[in-house]
């Protein structure tokens, strides 16, 4: 079952080991800027996921015909086309969210996570693997966005899913949870510096978990080669 193993590896790489948000630290600009609420994070995460899957598939499909010298502009064009589609869709069906994401929606074009995957993986692998890789990387990125959004929204406003109806429709108004009541908002968590600090803690937590995992693994005994030091001058 070679193919299965390959896909398992793609899942593991995208969600944890090579996570674009936590490990590659790509696409930090939207990651830090718009994750002030879960709704924003979810909206941007879904948009990025969609663009990533489509661009990986397309790049992989045309990889035989793209000359090496001009590959980057072509990738950017492909990504830009999909971003425009997503932007138009969001403008039509989730206008409130479209306004609150602002400039960061078109800026997905320059998201290094997407062009990085196109360059590093999709342009060298068949369509099936490339689209699956896009899906996993996108989910990994969205999960980091969601975690950041959750922490920052709870710290900053004491709520969860505030404004979810902008993305999901009017039924989502019931999703809003008031975790605790503040007299005043904790602005640092909502502003970008708070995102940097929370992001630092997330990366630290990921590294701590990795350390724990390696410690738990059975150690392979290394054979010690003992040498007798012969040194007549020493006393």
């Amino acid at each position: 079952m070679k193919i299965n193993d390959e896909f398992k590896e793609i899942i593991w790489q995208g969600l944890w080991k090579n996570n674009p948000g936590l490990v590659q630290l790509l696409g930090l600009c939207p990651l830090l800027a718009v994750t002030s609420t879960i709704t924003n994070a979810l909206g941007l995460g879904l948009a990025t996921l969609l663009v990533l899957v489509c661009s990986n598939t397309t790049v992989s499909a045309v990889r035989q015909w793209v000359p090496k010298e001009v590959r980057i502009p072509i990738f950017v064009l492909i990504i830009a086309a999909f971003v425009s589609c997503v932007q138009l869709l969001m403008n039509a069906f989730a206008h409130g969210l479209y306004q609150s994401l602002g400039i960061f929606l078109p800026l997905i074009v320059t998201n290094c996570a997407i062009i990085g995957r196109a360059e590093a993986y999709a342009s060298k692998n068949p369509i099936k693997q490339a689209s699956f890789d896009g899906l996993m990387m996108g989910i990994g990125f969205s999960l980091v966005l969601l975690t950041l959004g959750t922490i920052r929204e709870v710290l900053g406003q004491g709520t969860l899913f505030d404004g979810a109806h902008l993305l999901l429709g009017d039924w989502a108004l019931v999703l809003r949870i008031e975790v605790f009541q503040f007299d005043s908002q904790f602005l640092l968590a909502i502003l970008p510096p708070g995102a940097f600090i929370v992001m630092g803690f997330l990366i630290a937590a990921k590294n701590a978990i990795d350390d724990k995992l390696t410690q738990q693994q059975p150690k392979t005994e290394q054979q010690n080669i003992e040498r007798v030091r012969v040194n007549f001058d020493a006393q």
């Binding site: 005043s184 904790f186 602005l187 640092l188 968590a189 502003l191 510096p193």
Partner: peptide, 10 residues
């Protein structure tokens, strides 16, 4: 500075 930008009222 953290306090000043987080809690301008207080």
């Amino acid at each position: 500075v953290m306090l000043l930008i987080s809690f301008p009222v207080q």
